[in-house]
Computed example of a mutant assay.
Amino acid sequence: MDATATEPRYACRRCGRRLSRRKSGGEDDDAFVCPNGDATVSVVDGIPRFPVPDDSHETLFDRLAPIYESPFWFDPLYRFVGGPGAPRDDRELVVEMLELENTNVADGDAPTVLDVACGTGRIARTVAADAAVVGIDIAAGMLERATRYAARNGLDGIAFAQMSADELWFDADAFDRGTCCWALHLLPDPDVVLEEIGRVLRSGGVFVGTTLVEDYVLELLPVRATAKGVLDVEPFDATDLRQRLRAAGFSSVEFDRRGAALFFRARRE
C-alpha cells in the first residue's frame, strides 16, 4: 500500500511565506495563494502551474510524453547508454539507494520525497510504495501522463506540480529525500538545480539520481553529436559532477557507473 500524500509545503519565492490552498467551489477558483498577496498559482486539472521558462524542452517533452514509457523510447535508450552492466530496472536501484527505511520520521509518518524533473512519474510511482512523493516537471504533457498513470495504479501518495527545477517553490528543509533521474544532463544550469535541491532537503537528507557521463557510447563523437542535436544532452565528466555536488553542499558522494549511465547518491550536509 502506498503512502498517503499530504499537501506539499509550497512557499512563495518572493517573500518565503507558505502558500495556502484557495478553493471556492468553481474550477477557476482553485489556486495556491501567498498570504502577502505576492503570488497566486492556479491549479489546472489538479496540477499547480508554477512559473516555468518558455523553451524548446517543454515542447519537445510534451511530444514525447505519449511514448515515453512505451517500448519505443525509454527502455531502448537506457539499454543503449547503460550497456550490458546496467541493472534490468533502473528504478529498483534508485529506490535501494534512497534508503527510505532509514529515514528518521515520526511513527505513522511516511518519508517525504521530491522527484525533480519527474517526467511521466516512472520513479515517483515506484517510490510511492514507501513514501509521500511530490513530482515536479516543466512539461505539462508529461505531468498529465504522470497524473493519469498514478490514478490508474490507485496511488494516493503522489502529488504533481508544474515547476522549474531551478526555482523550487518549497520551504527550506521540506523533504527527507530527493531524486533527479535522467534529467540533470538536460538542464541549462545544473549548479543552480543542485543548490535548490540542497536547500529543500533536510540536513542529512539523501539525494539520489541518474545522469549521463562522458563514457562508453558517449565517448563516440557521432553519438555525442546526435544526443546534443536531438535532446540537447550535455553529459558530465564524473569528476566534475562530484565537485559540483560538493559545491552545492552535498557530502558522502557515491557513484555507480554503468556504461554511460551514472547512478549517484549524496547527502546534504
Rank of each mutant, 00 (worst) to 15 (best):
Ala5Leu: 11
Thr6Cys: 07
Glu7Asp: 12
Pro8Trp: 01
Arg9Asp: 11
Arg9Trp: 08
Tyr10Asn: 07
Cys12Arg: 11
Arg13His: 12
Arg14Tyr: 14
Arg14Leu: 12
Arg14Asn: 13
Cys15Phe: 06
Gly16Tyr: 07
Arg18Pro: 00
Arg18Met: 13
Arg18Ala: 14
Leu19His: 07
Ser20Trp: 12
Arg21Gln: 10
Arg21Met: 13
Arg22Ala: 05
Ser24Ile: 14
Gly25Tyr: 06
Gly25Gln: 11
Glu27Asn: 12
Asp28Thr: 09
Asp28Asn: 13
Asp29Glu: 15
Phe32Ser: 04
Cys34Thr: 03
Asn36Val: 05
Asp38Ile: 09
Thr40Lys: 15
Val41Met: 11
Val43Thr: 10
Val44Lys: 08
Ile47Phe: 04
Arg49Ser: 03
Phe50Ser: 04
Phe50Met: 06
Pro51Cys: 09
Val52Cys: 05
Pro53His: 13
Asp54Trp: 02
Asp55Glu: 13
Asp55Trp: 03
Ser56Phe: 12
Ser56Leu: 15
Ser56Met: 11
Glu58His: 09
Thr59Leu: 00
Asp62Gly: 05
Arg63Phe: 00
Leu64Asn: 08
Leu64Asp: 09
Ala65Asp: 13
Ala65Glu: 03
Ala65Phe: 01
Tyr68Ile: 05
Glu69Tyr: 07
Ser70Met: 11
Pro71Lys: 06
Phe72Glu: 11
Trp73Gly: 01
Trp73Ile: 03
Phe74Gln: 12
Phe74Thr: 14
Phe74Ala: 13
Leu77Met: 15
Tyr78Cys: 04
Phe80Met: 06
Val81Ser: 00
Val81Leu: 09
Gly82Asn: 00
Gly83Asp: 01
Gly83Trp: 00
Pro87Glu: 04
Pro87Phe: 02
Arg88His: 11
Glu99Cys: 08
Glu99Asn: 10
Leu100Gly: 02
Glu101Ile: 06
Asn102Arg: 15
Asn104Thr: 13
Asn104Phe: 00
Asn104Asp: 15
Val105Trp: 03
Ala106Val: 09
Ala110Gly: 04
Ala110Leu: 03
Ala110Val: 02
Thr112Lys: 03
Val113Ser: 02
Leu114Pro: 08
Asp115Gln: 04
Val116Pro: 05
Ala117Met: 10
Cys118Leu: 10
Gly119His: 07
Gly119Met: 03
Thr120Asp: 09
Ile123Asn: 01
Ile123Val: 15
Ala124Met: 06
Ala124Tyr: 02
Arg125His: 05
Ala128Leu: 02
Ala129Gly: 11
Ala132Asn: 13
